[in-house]
Design a protein around this nucleic acid. Structure first.
Length: 859
RNA sequence: GCGAGAGUGGCGGAACUGGCAGACGCACUGGACUUAGGAUCCAGCCCGCAUUGUCGGAUAGGGGUUCGACUCCCCUCUCUCGCACCA
């Protein structure tokens, strides 16, 4: 008998699938399409367990859909632009391109070794000009339609590196390369995509995505953050300026006793310039902008501000009120200025108390009065208006509309809808990205690169500058060009695009990855899109998915696409986690640096930390390659799928892998030890009478088909699907161990069970099952075998164990025929001796009968 | 801080629609087979017990709804993810 040798088995079937071209697909209008996509990886070096899990989940679904007869598109590619390539280039003195392409080659081989069913002919890498040229084209179209525009923004700047820092490169307000160098905010021109134009539609369609997890939709809704309110105009005293504020509480406008600017607001400088307050205000602004926005607006942060020395007119009361700059006001939200109503907003209240500003109650509870002097906190509940002129006595919820209308009639405001969502800043001052195809001409201004000059190639013969700076602004051969209008000298934009742009449309390109006449082949994209099932990490719940949705709508409006949404169904998988090891002296340790609970360098005992997401920084990583080498791909796949349901975090366990390995060996032995009988037997026809034992196996076989199908189809719970198959295996083994002699009809029933088990396992562990299927005497290749269906009559049971409760506590059980009527069940339960003893002489108030499950006697 | 989730034995998890809490697996314990076992097979395995029982308790903690709550509602705690230039 052959021993299970996963390496040999897996290589054999991988070449078989490749030679047969199993997973190469074309548009076939006679078959139902199924587009399955997993989030493509960043080529960071080698695959990690997160990839393995993501792609194992996807592969089960893909193979399952193949077996159900779908025409399955299952592509793979590389999100290949990005900062890690630049960091690696500096560290290893190499080129980002070289590093990236080498990683791609290595990781492709690893994915192939995992046996994933990808159509490799469609592979794409976003760093190739054949890819990003179309991104540049779409950018130009967006520019022409006003969807891409330029505006000033603030970026993190390290004076020593002379470069812009990403948020993750800022450590405690300092540069990650220079931990004593404070990061400053620098104003800079940046390109933005007008996602806010689509805010309303993005929000509305959250209700039209039933295949998405509700939690993701909720997060997206909150991120878009629609709020209804009003713009109110406050004229500045001794000035032509009018300050616009956005508020959702226009009902409190009579209580607005001061006004606050966000530190970034351009009027701050303008209104204070040349005054004696200019210096103090400027210092406050500078100090405040160093603190991250979410920190400085946090509830626990002390509300701080500075008086500008200027006043404006409250349009409702016509009183002069002071203008402040405050740390808790966000420039990005609303208009970047607020009217402050200290009596009815807690932040405003704290601010007013700190700076001795006046308060005026304008809403009071119906049952009592409120006085400014006695208030210890803002009154934020509903109530009735007071001190509000003609609106006194109106309920505040009704006043919202009335006051908005009143302000509008006076030309001092209007109702509006505001979104929390900001436009998408896509400019990156980086080298390893797609160039933004824009030209600057001294005479003609900002303009697009003519379409026939695309792509704007990213030159690959450049090296990063000191501190990781992009070489593009320093390379005349790149940025020097001619203006297409006047023929005079022009310069190119040297910023590159956010890599989220590439990942916002790669799924479209997969439908026609080699198409040369445009971004997409219209017919192919129409056949395949939308993606039927998208699978990826929960960490992408907001940004990547929202950007992709936005981009889809833009492409639709440009006429490239017919769909409104890119992903019909979404599965967000959890993280792969593992405990951390830490040595007092040597910090975090890799698992292989620990021996018997001690650091291998110094021999000191180590601290075991709680289980967190596997990452290089905490060194709690397991290299999938080592597991593949030791156990084979099938075992690794099996473990990932069995250990927890996909949407939950997966707790890593070396022993668990061992368990998966043992299970596959049990399956292997069952087939190889009984190969003669099994390959000669005829599968059970469902008609010949069976002994109770065999009937049990027959029933279990069909129950397992139902269970596994439901688990995969309805909720992707592969862990319970696999445990059901384990139960079937246990049942078969039990029968074989307990039977001295096995009849022909018995072998038929066993054959049916074993065949079924092998088929059901195929999507999870495709290699071993293809091998066993062949041994069982079938023609090669399970991918083309139909998924089994269960027979309803095979599931039927004659009797059922029903629980009897008295007052909700289980007191007895009875085996009753399933056909028994409710009345009969009730009578039989009440006759039960144990039940009788618990009822005693108490009165039976109620009897609840739940068919096939339980009887509850209430006394 | 804000937004969103999660919390069940020693561990991963199961219980899908409110109906037997702990399926399946791991670890552990005992036994069988064996020259040997990190193989295999069999059995046990939530906690408690001065009533070993078809007993009592137990699903982060507290309260509520219900004949009945891991499941629904309220409060608290802990952990995870996201927070717009990481991917």
């Amino acid at each position: 008998m052959k021993k299970y040798d996963p390496q040999a088995v897996e290589v054999r079937w991988q070449s078989f699938w490749e030679e047969e071209g199993y997973f190469e697909v074309t548009e076939d209008k006679t078959r139902k399409k199924y587009y399955l996509l997993e989030m493509f990886p960043y080529p960071s070096g080698k695959i990690h367990m997160g990839h393995v899990r993501n792609y194992a989940i996807g592969d089960v679904v893909a193979r399952y859909k193949w077996m159900r007869g779908f025409n399955v598109l299952h592509p793979m590619g590389w999100d290949a632009f990005g900062m890690p390539a630049e960091n690696a280039a500096i560290e290893n003195n190499t080129h980002p391109a070289k590093w990236t392409y080498e990683n791609i080659d290595y990781m492709r081989a690893q994915l192939q070794r995992m046996g994933f069913s990808y159509d490799w002919d469609r592979e794409l890498a976003t760093c190739r000009p054949e890819y990003y040229r179309w991104e540049q084209l779409v950018f130009l179209k967006m520019f022409n339609e006003g969807l891409a525009y330029r505006k000033k923004t603030y970026v993190n700047w390290c004076g020593l590196c002379q470069t812009v820092l990403a948020n993750e490169q800022v450590v405690d307000g300092c540069c990650w390369r220079h931990l004593d160098q404070e990061v400053v905010l620098k104003e800079m021109d940046s390109w933005f995509l007008k996602i806010t134009d689509y805010a309303k539609e993005l929000l509305e369609y959250c209700d039209k995505l039933p295949g998405w997890p509700e939690k993701v939709l909720t997060m997206q809704r909150n991120w878009i953050g629609e709020s209804h309110g009003a713009i109110i105009r406050f004229p500045v005293i001794d000035s032509d300026h009018v300050i616009e504020v956005f508020t959702t509480r226009q009902d409190t406008v009579f209580g607005a006793t001061f006004l606050c600017f966000a530190p970034e607001h351009p009027l701050v400088h303008e209104l204070t310039e040349g005054s004696d307050r200019a210096k103090e205000v400027a210092e406050f602004v500078e100090r405040t902008l160093k603190v991250e926005a979410f920190l400085r607006t946090a509830d626990f942060t002390v509300k701080e501000g500075v008086f500008t020395g200027r006043y404006c007119l409250n349009p409702a009361t016509e009183e002069e009120i002071p203008i402040y700059v405050a740390n808790f006001v966000l420039y990005e939200y609303g208009t970047g200025a607020i009217m402050a109503v200290p009596t009815h907003d807690q932040r405003d209240f704290e601010f007013a108390k700190k700076y001795g500003l006046s308060l005026r109650v304008v809403i009071k509870p119906e049952d009592r009065d409120l006085t400014e002097e006695e208030m210890a906190e803002a009154y934020v509940d509903e109530g009735v208006l007071v001190n509000s002129g003609q609106f006194n006595g109106t309920r505040n919820m009704e006043a919202l509309d009335k006051i908005a209308d009143y302000l509008e009639s006076k030309g001092m405001g209007h109702k509006t809808v505001n979104f929390r969502l900001k436009d998408w800043g896509i400019s990156r001052q980086r080298y390893w990205g797609a160039p933004i195809p824009i030209l600057y001409c001294a005479k003609c201004g900002v303009g697009p690169v003519p379409e026939d000059q695309l792509p704007v190639l990213l030159p690959l013969d450049l090296d990063l500058k000191e501190g990781g700076r992009s070489p593009l602004p320093h390379e005349a051969s790149f940025y020097e060009t001619k203006c297409p209008h006047c023929g005079g000298p022009a310069t190119r934009e040297t910023d590159t695009m956010d890599t989220f742009v590439e990942s916002s449309w790669y799924f479209d390109r997969f439908t026609s990855p080699r198409y040369e006449n445009g971004p997409f082949d219209t017919e192919k994209i129409a056949y395949w899109m939308p993606v039927d099932q998208y699978i990826g990490g929960i960490e992408h719940a907001i940004m990547h998915l929202l950007y992709s949705r936005f981009y889809t709508k833009v492409l639709r409006d440009m006429g490239y696409l017919e769909v409104d949404e890119p992903f019909t169904n979404l599965l967000t998988q959890g993280m792969v986690c593992k405990e951390t090891f830490r040595c007092r002296q040597h910090g975090y340790l890799f698992p292989e640096e620990v021996k018997e609970g001690r650091c291998m360098q110094c021999g000191k005992g180590i601290e075991t930390g709680s289980s967190v997401k596997m990452s290089k920084s905490t060194k709690n990583i397991v290299d999938p390659q080592k597991l593949i080498d030791r156990y084979g791909a099938d075992t690794v796949r099996m473990f990932c799928l069995f250990a927890s349901p996909p949407e939950r975090d997966l707790e890593w366990s070396d022993e668990g892998v061992e368990g998966a390995w043992r299970f596959l060996n049990r399956v292997w032995r069952l087939v190889t030890e009984n190969r003669e009988h099994l390959s000669n037997a005829k599968p059970y026809d469902g008609i010949l009478p069976l002994s109770p034992d065999l009937k049990d196996i027959h029933r279990k076989t069909h129950q397992t088909i139902k269970k596994v199908t439901d688990d995969i189809e309805d909720r992707f719970h592969f862990n319970t699907a696999i445990s059901a198959i384990m139960e079937l295996l246990n049942k078969i083994n039990q029968f074989l161990n307990n039977s001295a002699e096995i009849s022909e009809v018995a072998w038929s029933a066993i054959k049916e069970a074993v065949d079924t088990m092998v088929i059901l396992l195929h999507p999870v562990v495709p290699h071993i099952t293809d091998e066993l299927w062949e041994m069982l005497g079938h023609p090669q290749g399970l991918t083309t075998v139909s998924w089994p269906t269960y027979r309803e009559e095979a599931l039927e049971e004659e009797s059922r164990l029903v629980v009897i409760q008295v007052n909700g506590k289980v007191r007895s059980r009875m085996e009753i025929p399933v056909s028994l009527a409710e009345k009969e069940i009730q009578d039989q339960a009440l006759r039960d001796k144990r039940v009788q003893s618990f009822i005693g002489d108490k009165e039976v108030k109620r009897v609840i009968v739940v068919q096939k499950k339980l009887v509850n006697v209430v006394v």
